[in-house]
Design a protein around this nucleic acid. Structure first.
Length: 987
DNA sequence: ACAGAAGCTTA
DNA sequence: GTAAGCTTCTGTT
């Protein structure tokens, strides 16, 4: 090696973990072998090697090595036995990939370096020192902070996943110290992942500041007494030894005795057939094709290679990556390996040759084939160009679009521009209301070269309403509300967020565009934050310059289109089309209309209540100060705990998981019951201040000045079970249990001459339970219209319903609810304040009387364990990937959740169906009632007074028959409905 | 300015 | 024992 050469050192071990966690799971089609990290690794190495041939790129490797950890036992464990001691075993589906990545390295014709007793980082440190000594440059392919100490004038780092160079300035920017001080900084901060102790309470910011002040760690420790802050000074003096040992642990060893010298690392051209053989075996079709093209190799001429797979059950040692050449098992004769685990039924099973699965695979290729390049999107700035685009979109028949606006509240949002895409990579942005100036006081005037909103929308309206052009949008409800305020009724449509929700509810990750893009396309889209800033200094989207806005907005539409291409076919492949088409998509315009209508609230009532609550709270506050003897902050659980259990020495204190005294309402109630005065007053104070701050003070701020009503926002894809959620404001948690709280409901009122109608399902989840678990006694009780909890109590305790003590019924009721929540003796005991043994006995007795429920619970757990998901009676899937966890409490939690999900999810599906059918039924009956709110088992309407009596039976009929005709339930549904001027009296 | 914990509201 | 969202405090940035 000589001056001018360039050595690439890939941190193989670090990359494995990062690729595994960053990339969407991928399984080899033929046998389910997990391969996502292997593919990520191969793509990354291939790209780096291709860049080597492209001399126009700044960095050109001449030497190349991939470095791995050998085992977790290194000289550092002798230094400090706890080092890396709290590492947990790698995920099961990662284990076979360690060996495969080493084999991939060999297939790429690259040196695969590891050394017993040393970490990959030490080997990297040694090579980079050697390269430096002969005057060559080094690039370390990693983003691990532990390697940043090596950065220098000739040594840089490169993060392949973020495509980012890390040099001296980047280290300083990120950590506040130059690379040579990284060792001292890490010595102070420690590392919880590797179990490097550091000094407790010192984070990177404090450490950088101290090193700035004292020069280095030795200087700091020598002059620690000069530190001003008392606590900091004491901890640093007390933990000086920990800092010193930490420094030893984080200092990389740059004199590892290496077998391969620098000249053994010369980069050779890849051996096409050898590499393709490996890639073919892995079934990486796209990469195989690329490599074949680049190396002019015929794919068909190459035999699949044989690879060895490390299985989870044969893995050894804490760092399974370790034993690279570990006893290879003979490969099966056909050259493919056995699956590492049996494929789960229905989930990413190998294609059976059925069209939907093949289509899914094809669409994945299409969606990812063309590179995502935000600079390729164009801005449309005149009518002629827009006309041409509209014609093109008509031809295409599909159009992804996204509205850029001034607000996340669609009722307040002003249009700034529209982006659209008709094919992957083919996206445009139509700026409409961008302003000049860069966040100046007045923001300047509108920019030139923009089509006027009216003209643009006049041209786009026919396209957006065209029944023969499918619109594709991520979160359609928002765009429906915004566009309908401009007189455009967008349709027909598909919503990528909802497709993902139907496919993957319960799997990790959200259903927002950025999450989906990362998960499926391996691409992190530009964030609005990057563009417009955040917090106080944020600028409006209209102030973003049009070029940057085009790149951002175009990408949003492009990604929605690509995601649709690859996700939509999966619905059919998994039999989820009808869930999407009956329960999700049609609800979108219904909810959009509910949100747009909003509900009227009476400011005066709320303001009067606020005053009363303030007075009440002030009175209680004074009483509390009187008892305590000082003016503590009652809202601070910390101060409260210190007073109650420290100063006043009350008994029965318990601690929360962070070691604080618990001051929960339950605990305070118990203390109050023992005759203590203070806890009662604290509970009262909390109720008053809660009602005031969360409701009476906050709600008026949500009144839209234009409509004078409150418009909540419903999330369709926020819960795992299929329920909706409500926010800004949340109108699904308006108080109802206490008389004080119910007063807030009196502020939700109907317009003049109108009434609110509230209709709610009675015991819907227990009815669903009786139906799915087929419990004869419960079915009979519901058919008779009997008191279900009393019947339960009667069955369990052999007491007649007539004259039953309320306590007996209360216990049966708690058990019924417990079943819905996935009962545990612990939970029931807590709920009823009885010993756990007693709760256990109740449950046992319950199962004896209702054996069908025990069967239902067991069957649900088994099904969830085998499939990784449960289903509602309408086929909605709710995933519980952690149900096979080896951690018993995680497993038990997932079992309870899956039991609950079938019931809660089915109930959610039923009310969704009612909502989808409701508008048409009202219209058919020539009723003007408007649906305003949904609260899980309740619908609230507003209707003219004269139609109240006619409306109620229609609403009841639709709700009670909602499962039909998809499902005919063996238990009748019952709906209670009432009308009144306000929500309190209607409920 | 933001994140997490604790607490409280609903079905 | 299930499912959510919002406010306050607290500690860190």
């Amino acid at each position: 090696m000589k001056k001018g050469d360039h050595l690439f050192l890939v941190d193989g071990s670090g990359y494995i973990f990062r690729a595994y966690h960053a990339l969407p799971p991928l399984n080899r089609k033929s046998d389910g072998l997990p391969t996502s990290a292997v593919l990520g690794f191969c793509n990354m190495v291939w790209k780096l090697m291709q860049d080597a041939r492209n001399t126009s790129v700044g960095i050109v490797p001449t030497h190349f090595a991939v470095i791995f950890d050998y085992s977790s036992k290194t000289f550092r464990s002798d230094l400090y036995p706890e080092y890396k001691a709290n590492r947990s075993a790698p995920p099961e589906d990662l284990i076979p990939q360690f060996g495969l990545i080493r084999q991939a390295t060999v297939a790429f014709n690259l040196p695969c370096i590891e050394m017993e007793g040393f970490e990959a980082d030490d080997i990297i440190a040694t090579y980079s020192r050697l390269a430096c000594e002969v005057g060559a440059d080094t690039t370390i392919v990693s983003s691990d902070k532990d390697l940043m100490q090596l950065v220098g004038p000739t040594v840089g780092m490169y993060d392949p996943m973020k495509d980012r160079q890390i040099g001296i300035p980047e280290v300083v920017e990120k950590w506040g110290v130059p690379p040579e001080k990284m060792i001292d900084l890490q010595a102070l901060t420690g590392d919880s992942v590797d179990n490097v102790p550091g000094v407790p309470g010192i984070g990177p910011k404090t450490a950088a500041q101290l090193l700035e002040q004292f020069g280095d760690l030795d200087g700091l420790l020598a002059r620690a007494s000069e530190i001003k802050q008392d606590k900091r000074r004491e901890t640093i003096i007390a933990n000086a030894d920990k800092a010193r040992i930490s420094r030893e642990l984080v200092t990389l060893k740059n004199d590892v005795p290496l077998k391969e010298g620098l000249d053994d690392l010369i980069l050779h051209a890849p051996d096409g057939p050898k590499l393709i053989g490996f890639l073919k075996t892995m079934e990486f079709t796209t990469l195989t094709r690329r490599v074949a093209e680049a190396t002019a190799t015929e794919i068909g001429d190459v035999q699949a290679a044989s690879v060895t797979i490390e299985r989870a059950d044969t893995a050894h040692g804490p760092d399974v990556g370790a034993g690279a050449p570990a006893a290879p098992r003979p490969a099966p004769p056909n050259g493919t390996a056995e699956p590492s685990r049996p494929p789960v039924r229905g989930e990413d099973a190998p294609p059976q040759g059925d069209t939907p699965s093949l289509l899914s695979a094809l669409r994945l290729e299409q969606a990812t084939a063309r590179k995502i390049d935000p600079s390729a999107y164009t801005a449309i700035r005149d009518l002629a160009a827009l006309k041409a685009w509209v014609a093109e979109a008509r031809e295409a028949g599909i159009l992804a679009f996204d509205a850029e606006t001034t607000s996340s509240d669609p009722m307040q949002a002003e249009l700034i521009g529209l982006s659209m895409a008709i094919a992957p990579g083919r996206a445009v942005y139509v700026p409409l209301a961008h302003m000049s100036g860069n966040g100046d006081l007045l923001g300047g005037g509108p920019l030139a070269d923009q089509i006027a909103v009216r003209e643009a929308l006049a041209l786009l309206k026919p396209l957006l309403e065209d029944r023969s052009v499918l619109k594709i949008v991520q979160d359609m409800k928002y765009d429906i509300v915004v566009m309908s305020r401009h007189g455009i009724e967008v349709g027909p449509f598909d919503d990528t967020m909802l497709v993902s929700y139907v496919l993957d509810a319960g799997t990790s990750g959200g259903h927002d565009l950025a999450s989906l893009s990362e998960k499926w396309l391996g691409h992190a889209p530009a964030s609005k934050k990057e563009l417009a800033g955040s917090g106080k200094s944020a600028i409006g989207f209209g102030q973003v310059d049009i070029e940057r806005a085009t790149a951002y907005a175009g990408e949003q539409a492009d990604l929605a289109l690509r995601l649709w291409q690859l996700l939509k076919p999966r619905l059919a492949a998994k039999g989820l089309v009808s869930v999407y088409e009956r329960l999700e998509r049609p609800l979108v315009p219904v909810l959009a209309r509910m949100e747009q209508r909003g509900i009227s609230i009476d400011r005066q009532i709320l303001s009067r209540l606020s005053g009363e609550l303030a007075q009440g709270a002030a009175r209680v506050e004074e009483e509390i100060y009187g008892i305590v003897g000082e003016r503590i902050n009652i809202g601070s659980p910390k101060q409260l705990g210190d007073i109650l259990f420290g100063k006043m020495g009350l008994p029965g204190g318990s601690k929360t998981k962070t070691g604080q005294w618990s001051t929960s309402a339950q605990l305070l109630e118990d203390l109050a019951a023992e005759g203590h005065e203070l806890p009662r007053k604290i509970v009262d104070w909390r109720q008053l201040t809660k009602l005031k701050s969360t409701y009476t003070d906050a709600l008026p701020g949500f009144i839209n000045p234009g409509t004078n009503r409150v418009h909540t926002s419903y999330a369709l894809a926020a819960t795992t079970t299929g329920r909706l959620s409500s926010s800004d404001p949340n109108l699904q948690n308006i108080p109802v249990r206490t008389a004080e709280g119910r007063k807030i409901r009196t502020a939700f009122i109907a317009e003049k001459g109108h009434k609110l109608v509230s209709a709610d399902y009675s015991q819907i989840e227990l009815r669903v339970l009786a139906h799915v678990a087929e419990i004869p006694q419960l079915k009979q009780a519901f058919a008779d219209g009997a008191d279900i909890h009393a019947i339960t109590a009667s069955e369990m305790f052999n007491v007649p319903v007539e004259g039953m003590p309320s306590e007996v019924r209360r216990r049966a009721k708690a058990i019924n609810f417990g079943i819905i929540y996935g009962i545990s003796a612990f939970g029931l005991a807590n709920q009823l304040s009885i010993p756990r043994e007693e709760a256990s006995a109740y449950i046992k007795r319950y199962f004896e009387r209702f054996p069908g429920i025990r069967d239902y619970i067991e069957e649900t757990k088994t099904y969830a364990r085998e499939n990784g998901f449960v289903e509602t009676i309408f086929g909605r899937r709710i995933h519980y990937p952690e149900i096979r966890s080896s951690n018993p409490s995680v497993r038990a939690f997932n079992e309870r959740a899956s039991i609950n999900a079938r019931l809660q999810g089915t109930a959610a599906d039923i009310i969704r169906r009612a909502m989808v059918h409701m508008e048409e039924a009202l219209e058919k009956a020539k009723l003007s009632a408007r649906m305003l709110l949904q609260v899980h088992d309740e619908l609230i309407f507003e209707t003219v007074e004269a139609e109240v009596e006619a409306t109620i039976p229609v609403v009841r009929r639709v709700m009670e028959n909602a499962p039909m005709p998809a499902v005919s339930m063996s238990v009748p549904l019952h709906v209670d409905a009432r009308a009144a001027h306000n929500w309190d009296e209607a409920h």
